[in-house]
Amino acid sequence: MDTSSAFKGTVIVKHIFICLIAFVMLYPVLWMLGSSFKPANQIFTEIWFWPKEWNFQNYVSGWSGFQGSSFARFLVNSSLVSAGAVLGNVITCSMAAYAFARLNFRFKAVCFALMLMTIMLPLHVTLIPRYILFNNLGWVNTFAPLIAPKWVATDGFFIFLTVQFIRGLPRELDEAATIDGCGSVQIFWRIIIPLALPALITTMIFTFMWTWDDFFSQLIFLSDVTKYTVPLGLRLFLDSSSQSDWGPMFAMSVLSLVPCFILFITLQKYFVEGIATSGLKG
């Protein structure tokens, strides 16, 4: 009896603890949500997140967008770019990762080092050569410079991530499969992909978010307002040289978090239930 109530006690304490941290984590977001309902001059003068009066005007004027491109346009564009990027990254990075983690080939170490080096060089100094390259290809002001690189596994981060996961899988599985007559392709498809699913899910979430958030390259490569994505759309509300429309900016920021949020909620359960690894691993 005693132990069970003590147990209940620790569970409650644990919950309170987690909730407390959760509130601290969340407050800024609540503040942002609250701000999206406030008139502009209150956004900067009030600290408490709860609006004194609820004002939906920010959402209305934010949604109406610019020159006939409503904010929906930016959301659609961002979705296209992000979806293209996610698909590309998941496919090509996992392929490259499999090669690095499981196959023996010449120059493997050199290739791996090169791959890591591409992560280390700051983006800002390769931007101009990349721009010149894509401009010569006629890709500027299209989504291609934002998507195509993902289809050729230029995101070393995800290759490295997936390599680490695949290396965490016992080799016996591959060997058993080889004995059963599977080639590398089938091992990759039937064994590695299902088992490395958490890494692939992680790749999906991160690629989506990072593409969704990426201001700089999208600014550089897209010029036409009808092709603008969410981060560019949001900045259109802000002009630090004159007047900014903070209210609509906050409203649309909140709105643009929704897709990320939904994606995360849908995919995060794979970290709980996961996949039936246990049976395979035994």
């Binding site: 020159q67 401009n135 201001f215 700089f216 509300f237």
Partner: peptide
């Protein structure tokens, strides 16, 4: 027309000049 806010305007312009 190609318009934006102030942020990044000149970064983009110089990149375009380079290209």
């Amino acid at each position: 027309p190609e318009y934006s806010g102030w942020d990044g305007y000149f970064d983009k312009l110089s990149t375009q000049v380079a290209g």
